[in-house]
Design a protein around this nucleic acid. Structure first.
Length: 274
DNA sequence: CAATCGTCCTGCGGGC
DNA sequence: TGCCCGCAGGACGATT
């Protein structure tokens, strides 16, 4: 499901709803979702902890616990966090946190590509190595145009694949990579080294803008994404090309096409994107 | 090393 | 209507 805007929406909701609450009980319904440590130890470590500040790094959520420990979550393709009344039966829930005041936070995941990691003592690199390998946060102020140009230097492959590479930039996935390329008039299979100065500038600004805009609409609900209380995001109707094969390009009217790039469905306007 | 491909899962929707 | 197939917002591990 979730790319940076969706994960950021959930992060903000978590700050509001669960920050400061005590975890009274942890119920693991599917052990596969708990990556580290063993389910028994996970429960033992998590119970009685207080959910503290909630951070986002790329598509990861990082929940500070009291002491130096943290809970790291990744939603994969179909992961959700649902906040509800304690005891409520939530479809496909895999891990349930019963909180004080009769509340519960459920991690649900149909396809099971998501996961939870308990990280002791700020040992993120050991426990969740990919978290340590993430590229820069596109919406942080230190992610400048100059830095983007530097990162693109000497890169091989296809620009769309590169944008989705989490070690290149954190948080951009299949939807927003395509939207940014469309807005910039760049074909998804272009080689990074072929991009002109002006194209790089457009791509930089459009990528940041589309991420910010999507956050302001609380993300896109293409398939299964919903926020903490089960509401869909509102950005999907504003997507320009994603999932729109056969309909008309919002800019030139040409038919939007679909192709495979790096094994992923990719939508683009063959007239606008060169 | 870096780039590509198959794989992990389950549900949904389009087409026949 | 019902079945089958393709497709799905991600990322890892093996392979070249």
């Amino acid at each position: 499901m979730p790319e940076l805007p969706e994960v950021e929406t959930i992060r903000r909701d978590l700050e509001e709803k669960v920050r400061g609450k005590i975890i009274e009980r942890v119920i693991i319904k599917n052990e596969k979702s708990v990556k580290v440590p063993s389910p028994r130890e996970f429960i033992q470590k998590m119970e009685r902890k207080v959910l503290d500040e909630i951070h986002r790094r790329g598509k990861y959520l990082i929940v500070g616990l009291d002491s130096e420990d943290a809970l790291v979550l990744h939603l994969g393709m179909t992961g959700r966090l649902i906040y509800s009344k304690a005891g409520e039966e939530i479809d496909y829930s895999r891990v349930v946190f019963l909180l004080e005041n009769d509340a519960q936070l459920s991690f649900t995941d149909i396809r099971g590509f998501g996961g939870l990691w308990f990280v002791p003592d700020e040992r993120f690199e050991e426990v969740v190595p990919t978290l340590a390998n993430l590229g820069p946060e596109p919406l942080e102020t230190d992610f400048t145009l100059e830095k983007f140009k530097q990162l693109l230097k000497d890169k091989k492959g296809k620009i769309k694949t590169l944008l989705m590479d989490q070690s290149f930039i954190a948080g951009v996935g299949n939807v927003y990579a395509q939207e940014a390329l469309f807005l910039s008039g760049i074909h998804p299979t272009r080689s990074p080294s072929s991009l002109l100065e002006g194209e790089i500038e457009k791509l930089y600004h459009n990528l940041l803008n589309v991420l910010r805009e999507a956050i302001s609409y609380r993300g896109s609900s293409i398939k299964s994404y919903v926020d903490l209380v089960g509401r869909q995001g509102n950005y999907e109707p504003h997507l320009r090309v994603y999932g729109r094969a056969g309909s008309n390009c919002p800019r030139c009217g040409h038919v939007i096409e679909r192709m495979e790039v790096g094994g992923r469905g990719t939508y683009f306007c063959p007239r606008c994107q060169k």
